[in-house]
Amino acid sequence: MPSMPAKRVAERTTGAALVPLPRVTNEAEPVDPRIGDVDEWGRSEHIRELARMLYEPLYKYWFRAEWEGLEKIPDNGGALLVANHAAAIPSDAPVIMHGIEKELGRAVYGMADHFFKGIPVVGTLWSRGGGVAADPENAYRLLREQKQLALVFPEGSKGPGKTYGERYQLRRFGRGGFVEIAMRSGVPIVPIAVVGAEESMPILAKNATLAKMFGLPYFPLTANVLAFGPLLGGLLYFPAKFKLRVLDPVYFDVPADQERYSKSMVMDEADQIRIRIQDALYDMLRKRTSVWFG
């Protein structure tokens, strides 16, 4: 809805025409009797702490996550973390968020589709654990105004929806929206290449009819289900070795807060970032001797 014109001075019957300025007072800030620690995004540091405690064994002994170039993630200021996305139930987001929060002591907001917000319990836990709906408005406020770290997977659900045969083949990076957000927010993009997620819960086959029936982006048959049975296999990952490589941050040579950015420039930058992550993945896979031991 377009806003009404900002200033409109009306003549008054008395002829005294000026709009009086609002009084400037120095009132104290109102007291805020909060009792919880849930922030405006729904994230709770208490719940994150608990989640980190519970997740640490999985991170350390199951996936044995190993980072390279973690120092490239800025200690302060906003940055948009961009990674490849994989596994039927993506295992990469928790690993990245856990690793950065543990090593750098900085909160990471994981941006994902609005889809999650609609699932009972899961949506609430996701939100308390640092999940935020991937909306340009949310990203701008997080990055520009609050100078936080936000994590996005530009492949969206097409990344985790890949079958095993397509592993480590990056999908299209959306329409480059993530680049535009970073430009508008005036923050760098930090690409991260993740190896291991693909093998933690590989998809053998998909069924479009079932997906439609359940309103899901894809309905997978995973190797885990075959190995561990339908119940346990729906939750239990294979202990693939995780390796994460942080690539050099990309700074954009454009002013922040523009109304629009050249679409061709945005698409070009997005593609270059995609290629850099893809190249890093190939390099890491060349050096990998075992899926389980790295």
Binding site: M1, P2, S3, E40, W41, H114, F115, K117, G118, V132, A133, D135, E137, N138, R141
Partner: peptide, 13 residues
């Protein structure tokens, strides 16, 4: 709604 941003500004629909 499910697809709402966390904050609405006046000019948003």
């Amino acid at each position: 709604n499910q697809s709402d941003p966390a904050w609405f500004r006046e000019e948003m629909t």
